[in-house]
Design a protein around this nucleic acid. Structure first.
Lengths: 335, 335
DNA sequence: TTGTAGGCGTTATCAG
DNA sequence: CTGATAACGCCTACAA
C-alpha cells in the first residue's frame, strides 16, 4: 500500500506538499495537479491510523447501545448518523447486549482507539466505566438511560410522564387490577416508568399492590415470564402496563399462548412504539416517542460537547405521546 | 493521558520493559510488578492508534450491513459478535442504509483505519468498492448478498430453494394468481428469490405472468406500494410471495388498510422470519433461515481468510425452512 | 533479561 | 510557496 512518500516521489515534490494538497493548504496549482495525478496513479489512500496518531484525534464516534435488536435503538441510530455525517464524523455501532462486560470492553476500545466521542445507553448502573470516559476527557453523551452522579450530557424520554399517562388511560378505561412489568430496578428508565405508573394509581385513589409489579429485563422472554407469573396469581390482573417494546412483545405472546383475549380479559399498554403495533389484532396501544429525534438531539449534544469540553452538562427530556389503539380500549357494552 | 514513557519513568525501567509486560514478553517478576503498579497508578491505557500504526494491524472488524432496522441483519450480527469476541476481535457495526454512497464511505473508513477485516452485505451491484477492499488486501467476507465477479468468500441463504418452496406451497394451497414482490433487480437475493418463484410456477405448469412481479426496494414502504399496485390490476392476485421481511410488513399493512382478509382473499408468504410472525392475526407463513448461524459462519470465514489471505474463496449456502402458518393456508371449505 | 534506538505514515514547524 | 525534519506513542531488532 502506497504511502505519502511514494506519492511525493512520483510527483517529484516533498511529502509536505503532498500533505498540503491533501488537507487543503495553499500550494501551486501545477504541483497540486502533479500530486493529484500521483495519488490517482498509485491509488494512494491516507493512512488514518498514522494521521490519528499525529493529530491526536479521530473522526469516529462510538455509539454503544444496549440492544441492536431493539427497534428503538436502531431507529435512534438513524438520527445520530444523519447529524454525524453532516458534521463529518463516521459512526460505529457497538452492541453491548445489556451486558456490562461487553459495555466495558467497548468503552475500552473507544478510549484506546481515541474515538472523537461516545454516545452510550448504559447497560448497568455502575458508573465506573462511564467515569473512565469522562475523566479521560472523552466527550460522552448518555442516551435513553441516565446515570446518577455522572457528569455527562443526557438525552432522555419523559419516562415518568409517559408511564403516568399510559396508566391513567387504563384507569379511565375501567380496568381494576392494573399490573406493571418494568425493567431492571437499577435502570433509570425502569425506575421512572414504574414511578409514573404508581403516580397514576395513587392519583386515582387506588393503593399500589406490589404483587402486581415485576422487575424484568427489558427483553422479550422477561416480559413473557413476568406475564406468566401474573397469570398464576390468585387474583389475576385485568390490565398490564409494560415498560418497553420487547417486553410488550413477550406479554402479548404469553397472552396469546393462554388464549386470553385482549383487551376484554386483559388490557395492554406498552412503552415504546412497535413497528407492527397496528398489524397485530388487536392493535396495540403504545407510549410513543420521537426516537429519531432522540438520536439527533444526542448527536447535537455530542457535537457541542466536543466543541466545548468544559460546558456544563445538559439534561434534555423529550416528550412522549400515548397512541391509543385497541388493546386498551374496552368495548362499551363490556363490564 | 499517560504514555508508555511516563510508565517507564514511574517504574524506573525502560519503555521496552513496559511494553514487554504489557504484551507478554519475559521479564523479571520484580520489574514486572513495578510496571503493573505504575500502570495502575497512572491509569495508563495503551494508545491503540500508536500500536496499530507500529504493528500495522488492528483488532477491529467492520460489519457493514444494509439496514440496521432489519431484524435479519441485527440477528446475524449476534452470530458475528460471538465469534469475534472469542477470537479477540471487536466488532463495529456500520449501517449503509441501502445507500451505495454510505457503503462506499464506510468501506473507505475500514480501509483507511486499517481494520483487520470486513463483513459486508453489499448495497449495490457495483463491485468497485468491494474490489478496492480486495485489491488492498483487506480480508472481506460477503454475507447475505453476493457480487458477480468479486473474488471474496460469501455466506448466503439458499434463496432460490427457499422461494421455490414458498411458492410451491402457495400453489398447493390452490392459489391461482400468485404474485411476487422482490427486491432491487441487481441484488443477487432479489434475483434468486424471483427465480425460485418462477421455477415453482413453471413446474406447476403455469405460465409466469410478468404483470404479477414487482421489483421493490426490500423496505416496508416499497412492499406496501407494490401490493397497492397489485390491487389496481384488473385481475388482482389472490396470493403474494414477498421476498423479504420488511416488504412483507408493507404488504400486510396494505392488505389491512384495504380490509382484505388474509388468507381468504389474499394468501401471503414472506421470505425471512418476522419476530412477531405468530402474533399477527392471521399468523404469517415465512421462509425462515438460521440467521445467527449465517453470522457465525461468515465470521468463521473471515477468521480463516485473515489466517490465509490467499486461500481460494469459498461460497457457503445455508438452508432455509418454510414455516407454514395461517396466512397461506386456505380453510378447507374455501373455494 | 534489559535498554537503546529506529521506524510505522502523518502532520506541523521552521527555514529558505 | 516549498522542503527538510521533528514529533505523535508504540513495538522490536539489536546490542549489552
Amino acid at each position: 500500500m502506497a504511502t505519502i512518500y511514494d506519492v511525493a516521489r512520483h510527483a517529484d515534490v516533498s511529502v509536505a506538499t503532498v500533505s498540503r494538497v491533501l488537507n487543503g493548504g495553499s500550494v501551486d496549482p501545477v504541483l497540486a495537479r502533479r500530486v493529484t495525478q500521483a495519488v490517482a496513479a498509485l491509488r494512494y489512500r491516507p493512512n488514518l491510523v498514522a494521521r490519528n496518531l499525529r493529530t491526536r484525534r479521530t473522526r469516529l464516534w462510538a455509539v454503544i447501545i444496549a440492544d441492536v435488536r431493539n427497534p428503538f435503538f436502531t431507529d435512534m441510530v438513524r438520527g445520530i448518523e444523519d447529524v454525524a455525517s453532516a458534521e463529518g464524523y463516521s459512526v460505529v455501532l457497538c452492541n453491548s447486549d445489556e451486558d456490562e462486560t461487553k459495555e466495558a470492553d467497548y468503552i475500552d476500545v473507544a478510549l484506546a482507539e481515541r474515538m472523537a466521542g461516545v454516545i452510550l445507553s448504559p447497560s448497568s448502573s455502575r458508573t465506573e466505566h462511564v467515569d473512565s470516559l469522562v475523566s479521560a476527557g472523552c466527550p460522552v453523551v448518555l442516551v435513553d438511560r441516565e446515570l446518577d452522579g455522572v457528569r455527562a450530557d443526557a438525552v432522555l424520554a419523559d419516562n415518568e410522564q409517559g408511564a403516568y399517562v399510559a396508566t391513567r388511560h387504563l384507569v379511565e378505561q375501567g380496568f381494576e387490577r392494573i399490573a406493571c412489568v418494568t425493567g431492571p430496578e437499577e435502570y433509570s428508565t425502569a425506575a421512572q416508568r414504574l414511578s409514573g405508573y404508581r403516580a397514576a394509581l395513587i392519583e386515582a385513589g387506588r393503593d399500589v399492590d406490589e404483587s402486581l409489579v415485576r422487575f424484568a429485563d427489558f427483553r422479550e422472554p422477561g416480559g413473557r415470564a413476568a406475564m406468566e407469573s401474573f397469570l398464576e396469581c390468585p387474583q389475576r390482573p385485568d390490565a398490564v402496563f409494560s415498560a418497553n417494546n420487547l417486553m410488550t412483545l413477550g406479554v402479548l405472546r404469553c397472552l396469546a399462548d393462554h388464549g386470553l383475549s385482549v383487551p376484554d380479559e386483559v388490557g395492554v399498554v406498552g412503552f415504546d412504539d412497535l413497528p407492527w403495533a397496528e398489524l397485530v389484532r388487536p392493535t396495540v396501544t403504545t407510549v410513543g416517542r420521537s426516537t429519531y429525534d432522540e438520536g439527533r438531539v444526542a448527536a447535537e449534544a455530542l457535537v457541542r460537547r466536543i466543541a466545548d469540553p468544559n460546558a456544563e452538562p445538559e439534561r434534555k427530556v423529550l416528550p412522549t405521546r400515548l397512541k391509543v389503539r385497541e388493546s386498551s380500549v374496552r368495548t362499551s357494552t363490556e363490564r
